[in-house]
Design a protein around this nucleic acid. Structure first.
Lengths: 331, 331
DNA sequence: ATCTTTGATGTTACCGGTATCCTAGATTTC
DNA sequence: GAAATCTAGGATACCGGTAACATCAAAGAT
C-alpha cells in the first residue's frame, strides 16, 4: 500500500542572509521587501525579488515569530476527529483563520481531560496565538495554566459559568428542550428519550435534561430516559433494535427522540419494515450530529447543529481578540 | 451563542533566563535539566525544577527549533475536513505522530490544487519536519517546490508513478474492480455503476475504470456508467431516486454499485418501500467512505476503506524517515 | 549656497533557546 | 603526592529573522 521514493534531501532552502548577499543588500532590506515592500526602491526590490526567486527562498516564520512574539498559529483540541461535529468545527475555524494568514494546529484528546491537559502543555510550548477547546470540562490544572498564560482561549459547544476566557456555545439542553416542545406541539405525548452512552459525554446528559424540562413544562411526565450502553453501538441497527423493543414492550410510546441521528435513521428504517407509519403513528426525532445528518431524508424530524458555524464564530472571535478589538458578548 | 470573558492578559510566561536567574544558574543549566537531566547534579536539578514550577515556566519550542533545525511539526493538507475519509486519515496521522512528540498542522484546500499550492508555500514558512498530502494531483510548481525543499512528503489515497517522495496509496481502481468481481461472483450480471460527480474527483473516475475492467475481465459488457451530477445531491434521497429510475427504466439491471454509500443506503431504503428484495432480487454495493459507513446495516455489500489506517501508515512512514531509518517500500 | 527634511538602506542588538568549547574542582591513577 | 581523567556548570556564539536606531545622499526650504 505504500511505496518509498528516492528520498533525495537537498536540505532546507536558502536563508535570508544568502538572498541578501546575492542581491547585494543586507538582510534588513530583504526583510523589508517581504514585509513592507513600499519602503524599498522599485529597483532594489526587483533585485531582491530576483534573488529570492533564483534561490527559491522561503522565509522562516518560526524565526520571525521569535522576534515578533507571535507564532501565527492557532491550536485546537477536539475529542476526536472521527466525528463530523468536531471535524466541521475545525473546518470552520480553519477557514476563518487561514484567511488571516494563521495556521491551525490540531490534536485530539480522545474525550479524556487528562490527555487534554498534557496536550495543552505540549501545545503551549509552541506558543500559539490562541487556543480553541471543546467543551467546558477541563482539569483544574488546565484552567489554571491557561488563565495564567493569558492566551486568548475559546471554548466551544457548551455554555456555562466561568469560562476560561471566551465561549462559543451551543446549548444542548435548550436544543433538546426545543425539539421536545416541537414534538409536543405536533401532538405527541408519550415521548421516549433515547440517550447514547453518557459517560464522558456532557452533551448527552444536557440533552436529557432539556427533554425532561420541556416535558414538565408542558405538564407531561417525562418517561425514564432509555440509555444505549454499548459504546460501539452507534449503528443503524441499534436504532432498529430500540424501535422493536419499544414497539413490543411500550406500545403507548408515540414518539422517539434519539440523541444520535444514526439511531433515528435506523429506527425509521425499521419502522417501514414493521409497517409503522412515520410520522403519523410514531414521531421520530434525532440530533443531526453525524455526517449522515447532512444526507438524511426529510421524513425524520431533526435538530440542526451548526457545527461549521460554531467553528467560524470561534475563529472570528479569536481574530477580533488578536486584532485588539474589543470582544462583545454576542448571541 | 458566544460570550466574552474578562480577557485579562498576563502576557507570555517566564523565559528560560528568568528561571535560570531564580535558580542561581545559567540558561544552559536549565536547558540541561529539561533535556538531559542526568547531566545535572540532583541538588541543582531540584533548584531548577523548583524555579520552573514557581514561575510556571513553559519552554518555547519555537526558539529551540530555530537552533536544532527541527520544528517538531508535521503539516497535512486535505481537500476538506468535512469528509470523514480525510478526517479519519488525519486522526490516524495525529495519533501516530503525537506519540512521537510531534504536532500536526492542518489546512484544507477545498479540492483546488492552486489553493493547495499556496498553502504549501505558506506551510513551508513554518518549516514542518514533514508533509502529508492528499492525492497525487498537484500543480507542477507544488511538486518542484517540495522536491527542491527536500522535505519528507507522503502522498495519500492514490498510487501512481512519480510520487514526490513517499506514497501511502489506496487503489480505488483495484477496490472497485474487486467489488465488481465479487458481485459477478455472487451471480449478478447486469451491474450498473453509479458515479458521483467526477469533476475534481479522481477517485470516482478510477472507481469507474475498475468497474469496467472487472466487467470486461468477466466477459460482460459494462453498462454505461450513470453519473449523478448535482454536487449537492449526496443524499439518501438521491440513491432512492436512482433506484426508482432504474426500476422503471432499466428493469434488466440486477445490481447497483454506488460510489458513495450514502446513495447505496438510500437505495436500500427505497427498495424496501418498493418491495424489492435486497440482496436476492437486486444487489446493492457501495463504497464505505462516509461516517455513515461505520454504522450501516449489513444488508448492504460494501467496500471497506481503511482511512484511519492510511493515516497511521503515513505517520509511521514519516517517523521512520525522520528517524533516519531506511524506508522500505511495503504493501 | 547652506540648513533641514525626507527617504532608502545599513548597523546593532535581541528574540529564547541550544551546540560547542572551556574551566575549575573532584576523583582516579601510578 | 603529582599528573591524568572526569564532571558539573559556565561562557560564547549562533539559529534566522525583526525592531529600533543610525547614516547618508537627494530634495526642499530660506
Amino acid at each position: 500500500m505504500s511505496q518509498a521514493g528516492n528520498g533525495s534531501r537537498v536540505g532546507p532552502g536558502a536563508t535570508m542572509a544568502e538572498v541578501a548577499a546575492r542581491a547585494g543588500v543586507t538582510k534588513m532590506t530583504v526583510s523589508r521587501v517581504l514585509r513592507h515592500p513600499e519602503k524599498v526602491t522599485p529597483l532594489t526590490r526587483q533585485r531582491v525579488t530576483e534573488a529570492i526567486a533564483a534561490l527559491a527562498y522561503v522565509p522562516n516564520r518560526l524565526a520571525g515569530g521569535l522576534t515578533s512574539g507571535a507564532s501565527g498559529l492557532v491550536a485546537a483540541i477536539v475529542p476526536t476527529l472521527r466525528h463530523s461535529l468536531f471535524a466541521d468545527t475545525l473546518e470552520g475555524v480553519s477557514d476563518v483563520i487561514a484567511a488571516a494568514g494563521l495556521g491551525l494546529i490540531v490534536s485530539s484528546s480522545g474525550y479524556k481531560t487528562d490527555v487534554e491537559e498534557s496536550q495543552v502543555r505540549s501545545i503551549l510550548e509552541r506558543r500559539p496565538d490562541a487556543l480553541v477547546l471543546t467543551g467546558l470540562t477541563h482539569t483544574a490544572d488546565t484552567r489554571t495554566l491557561l488563565r495564567g498564560f493569558g492566551l486568548p482561549v475559546v471554548e466551544t459547544w457548551e455554555t456555562g459559568d466561568e469560562p476560561i476566557d471566551m465561549v462559543v456555545g451551543y446549548s444542548n439542553r435548550a436544543a433538546a428542550a426545543a425539539m421536545t416542545a416541537e414534538l409536543i406541539g405536533a401532538g405527541y405525548r408519550r415521548i421516549l428519550f433515547v440517550n447514547g452512552p453518557s459517560r464522558n459525554n456532557e452533551r448527552a446528559r444536557h440533552r436529557a435534561e432539556g427533554y425532561r424540562a420541556a416535558m414538565r413544562q408542558a405538564g407531561l411526565d417525562p418517561l425514564p430516559v432509555q440509555v444505549v450502553r454499548d459504546e460501539a453501538a452507534i449503528r443503524l441497527e441499534t436504532g432498529a433494535r430500540v424501535l422493536r423493543a419499544v414497539h413490543a414492550e411500550q406500545p403507548e410510546v408515540d414518539a422517539l427522540f434519539f440523541t444520535s441521528d444514526v439511531f433515528a435513521v435506523g429506527a425509521v428504517l425499521e419502522s417501514r419494515k414493521l409497517g409503522i407509519k412515520v410520522p403519523e403513528a410514531l414521531g421520530v426525532a434525532g440530533f443531526h450530529d453525524l455526517e449522515i445528518g447532512r444526507v438524511v431524508s426529510p421524513s425524520l424530524t431533526t435538530v440542526q447543529i451548526p457545527a461549521l458555524e460554531i467553528g467560524r464564530k470561534a475563529g472570528a472571535l479569536l481574530l477580533d481578540r488578536l486584532a485588539g478589538r474589543a470582544v462583545a458578548p454576542s448571541a
